[in-house]
Nucleic acid binder design. Structure first.
Lengths: 238, 238
DNA sequence: CTGACTTTGTGCATGTATTCACAAGGGCGT
DNA sequence: ACGCCCTTGTGAATACATGCACAAAGTCAG
């Protein structure tokens, strides 16, 4: 076959970011007992354009059947494999405040290859407590725990102030994938991947669009309130 | 005409997504007492290329001074205003499981114009409890509460199964901005904005890159394990 | 007042992503 | 066995985003 596309470094970033969405839609279909799905149906379920979906899937290989569609189970396997979900990814969560606890208890976390292997915190009143069947260990043990458990993904759920420090120690201990929930911009060496999840940023983006909608709807003028100055400094830390 | 850019619908989406990051960097600088900042410095603090930063800011207007840089306080105000943060955005959180509670207690949430105005849940054992100075109300009250509090942004923190239903009710009650934490693809009318925050998706993206790194480092062959089939259906619900 | 120096704002080239539209390919009924 | 019909996979067109490189515009020293 004309195997071209699927090569080992050929998948665009935008496509990678959508594969998990497709995977979720596929699981839903499988749950419903659907055996076969067309690009159009899957695209609707995933909330994207069908041409985009087909092009995305074509980067993994030619797994559809013309005139029929895609076999759901087979496609689930191919996408999972491409994303690396057929192997085990031990995850460590650092910081067990409200958010860290929520993450530790979140069911969907553990599924699909991700396994919470360690919980770490520096607060002595939290260390030693059990959360989601694991005992919280002290941050001093970070390096040892990471090596022992072969942790490959670190989740930072600390206050902003500790974010960079924790990140540096994770990197030093050999972690090369980091998911950051702390509202701080992390700097890391090139070989380390960081993804951030930041609800404050998402809210601000929503506010931008909401403001636009409001100013269009009401009246094209007076979108702001010039009399009320913004309060200058807002602590970014915990 | 030189003034062109700043028009009422001229800001690219990619730029909007970065403005909150710049804002955070600016707050940090202001906290340090920095009065003026160059595009290069700000770019480093925000983790982007300086040309990109300048182009982004140029979409809001010409707020820098050549040879000097940007006045931090003034830029904070301009970016805040552009994002709509100079006005009040009442937020309702629906679903007060681990995640909802973490969000309600999250300090950074309340700052910068966002104000938690209501907490809603359908579980009778949760309704009536107080979280972060607010009493949890029953979901049945959703429409009334949203109108009374003039809620404009809804945060969905329910299990996946309830996500679409809650979303529909929010939309029906007039909410046009939704932040979705439930692992489900929401479908909404065109005039409604949805942003999703999905840690499982972020982890999968990290896994993809980690896998690539591993297979490049180890040996260019054998990136997959053909003997170990993927376990087929994984419930997506809570 | 002048000229050297700094940093912005932006034209242009390049790269990446999306979407259209259709030929290529495969199933299925007859 | 054949041809119709459906859906994939992809070339080509378009739209969007990034980054270089520099002229325009300001500061500041003397």
């Amino acid at each position: 076959m004309s195997q071209s596309a699927n090569g080992s470094h050929g998948i665009p970033e935008a496509t990678v970011a959508r594969l998990p969405v497709y995977l979720r839609a596929l699981f839903q279909l499988a749950e419903n007992g659907t055996a076969t799905v067309s690009s159009e149906e899957l695209a609707v379920a995933a909330g994207v354009n069908s041409a985009k979906l087909r092009k995305d899937l074509s980067h993994l290989g030619s797994y559809g059947t013309r005139g029929v569609g895609y076999d759901v189970e087979y496609l689930v396997y191919q996408v999972s494999r491409e994303l690396g979900l057929t192997q085990d990814w031990p995850v460590a969560i650092i910081g067990l405040g409200n958010l860290g606890r929520a993450l530790a208890n979140y069911g969907g976390f553990a599924s699909r290859g991700f396994r919470i292997a360690a919980l770490l915190d520096s607060d002595p009143t939290v260390v030693g407590t059990r959360i989601a069947r694991l005992t919280v260990q002290h941050s001093d043990e970070m390096e040892a725990v990471i090596r022992r458990q072969r942790v490959s993904i670190g989740v930072i759920a600390t206050p902003a102030g500790s974010g960079q420090g924790v990140c540096d120690r994770l990197v030093a201990a050999g972690v090369t994938s980091i998911l950051n929930f702390a509202p701080v911009i992390l700097s890391v060496p090139d070989h380390v991947d960081v993804r951030k999840v930041d609800l404050s940023i998402e809210l601000q983006i929503l506010a931008f669009h909401a403001q636009r909608k409001a100013s269009v709807a009401d009246r094209p003028a007076r979108p702001d309130r010039p009399d009320q100055a913004v309060e200058a400094v807002e602590a970014v830390g915990s």
